[in-house]
Amino acid sequence: MNSHDQSVESADGTRLVVRRLGVGDPVVLVHGSGGGLHSWAAVADDLAHDHEVWLPARRGYGPSDVPPGVKSFRDETADLVAVIETARRSSGRPVHLVGASYGATLALHTTSAEPRDVRSLAVFEPPLFAAGAEIAPLLNRYRAAFERDDAAAMAAALNDVTRVPAEVVAAIAAGAGDRRPDPVEARRSAVGWLHDLEALAQDSTDITRWSSIAVPTLLLAGADTWEPMPTTMNALATTIPAARYVVWPGQSHFVTMTAPALVAQALRRFFAGVPVA
């Protein structure tokens, strides 16, 4: 699928690189921590057969700008609003907003604050439990490891944030074998994680704040994802009572990579049922 990269300027002048592909109703796909332009690639290629897909690299993740200072969800909400407004101007239509993991938390923030151009919202496993004061010491641990370029210590701190079980960590490591990440990509991911942790440390674990979301909403989860994600998703489903809630058997937090066709199919079915704005 042919794609085109363009720049979008946020309210504070931060330059965001956005990949665009396909033709049709606009869809904005927001990546999680450690991701980038590539994160939604397989899902985007599928959706682009009948949708105009927009893939922003969030601030802190190259090739977008890495601004100085401590990042907040307010900054990233302004970024995402700029991307949504650009997609709206391009197509003349409001967007379907989709986020995975940290990107899902950001999509919730953005829809709650600025729903005007959001036609629908789909969120996959936002880590709403990983926020606030308990993240601050993990941020400090991660920052210290980052500054000495200690990949193992960075990974250990992140595992304590995401609460990935040890056996899952071991399975991922075994699957990687002797493959080593590209050092440029690894550093880009590490920088992005640092900024994401800054925003999470200032955020709240209060799930009830999302009760004001009124756009058509789809909640997505994998049945095999570890706690506290299932409890978190159930609480979110209670908070947004009009939301549709889909749990995929045999899938986990990595479903956008392991089963992209399943994700694209669920999104396409959801979009088709959203009233025309």
Rank of each mutant, 00 (worst) to 15 (best):
M257G: 07
R163T: 15
L219F: 08
T256Q: 04
A272T: 08
P230T: 04
R209I: 15
M154L: 13
P183F: 09
G273Q: 15
N159M: 09
Q265M: 12
Q251P: 00
P181Y: 07
V164Q: 08
H253F: 04
S204R: 08
M229D: 01
D149K: 14
A266N: 14
T205N: 05
A176K: 06
L220W: 04
R209G: 09
Q202R: 09
A214N: 13
P241L: 11
D178N: 06
A156K: 10
E198W: 05
D203I: 08
I207G: 02
P183R: 09
I135H: 13
E167C: 04
R244I: 08
A190N: 04
A152G: 11
A155Q: 15
A272C: 02
A145M: 14
V168G: 02
A264M: 12
A153Q: 15
A243D: 11
D203T: 06
A223H: 00
A166W: 02
P183D: 12
W193V: 04
A171F: 03
P249G: 01
A176S: 09
A259E: 12
R179E: 05
A156M: 12
V184T: 13
V191K: 03
P165R: 02
L218A: 13
A221W: 00
T256R: 02
E147N: 04
A186Y: 09
A259Q: 12
T205Q: 08
A176M: 12
T256C: 00
L138E: 14
G273A: 15
R188S: 07
A243P: 08
L200V: 07
G177L: 06
P241C: 11
S204L: 05
H253G: 03
N159H: 10
T258N: 05
A156D: 14
T205M: 06
A171M: 03
F146D: 12
M257W: 03
M229C: 03
P249M: 01
V215H: 07
E227T: 00
A176Y: 04
P181A: 09
D149I: 04
A221P: 02
L262G: 12
Y142Q: 06
P137K: 11
G175R: 03
V246W: 06
Q265E: 15
L138M: 14
T256W: 02
I207N: 05
R244F: 04
N140V: 12
Q202H: 06
R141P: 06
V191T: 13
R148N: 12
G177E: 10
